[in-house]
Design a protein around this nucleic acid. Structure first.
Length: 182
DNA sequence: CTCGGGATGCGT
DNA sequence: CGCATCCCGAGG
């Protein structure tokens, strides 16, 4: 069980997204430890991707996307839910992978199907925005031991993005009961 | 400063 | 389909 390093995140976003499936998201705070296996993600591949927050250019909100690969980009959506992303590709290439669902493995109560519920159940909020996933509070480990097939589908809730809404940039583990409805 | 919308989720 | 609930980005 090894923590993913900078080099893992500093690659093509679609590759990182697919390889994140099956890996373990860990949140540790004040002696409390919560672990979930990542079963669903979405790739937001860069400023040219009209569904990506970075397509509007650098703003206060999306600034973490323009930073180092391996940092967390967390934002509030609809005034109620947080969404957590991991930044990918070299600094300046504003791309990220949205974590949409995990399978609860340790210390998790509540549902984890969907980006908002995932964050709520794992105690992830704005305090961790910009956090470096090479640190010890929030990180991802590579202990994937399952064999699975990857399903590729259009992303959820980005119908405004034209052709980009139809690209198959949502990935999830086939047959997992922990994938969101979408 | 106001104003509108959003990578959601739940109940009807 | 409506609604909760609020940060942020655009525009005056």
């Amino acid at each position: 069980m090894r923590k993913l390093d900078r080099a893992f995140y500093n690659r093509d976003t679609v590759t990182v997204a697919q390889e994140l499936l099956g890996k373990c998201l860990v949140h540790q705070e004040q002696g409390r430890r919560r672990v979930g296996r990542i079963v669903e993600v979405e790739a937001y591949v860069g400023p040219h991707d009209k569904a990506s927050h970075s397509s509007k250019g650098l703003t206060v909100r999306n600034a973490p996307m323009f930073g180092l690969p391996g940092i967390a980009y967390i934002y509030l959506i609809y005034g109620m839910y947080y969404c957590v992303n991991v930044v990918t590709e070299p600094a300046g290439h504003a791309a990220a992978v949205l974590l949409r669902a995990v399978e609860p493995l340790e210390g998790i109560t509540g549902r984890t199907q969907g980006p908002g519920l995932l964050c709520r159940a794992m105690g992830i909020d704005k305090r961790l925005n910009g956090y470096d996933l090479l640190g010890n509070e929030l990180f991802i480990t590579d202990d994937t031991f399952l064999d699975f097939r990857i399903v590729k589908r259009p992303r959820i809730g980005v119908d405004y993005a034209g052709i980009w809404a139809r690209r198959h940039l949502r990935f999830y583990i086939a047959g997992s009961p922990f994938v969101s409805r979408g």
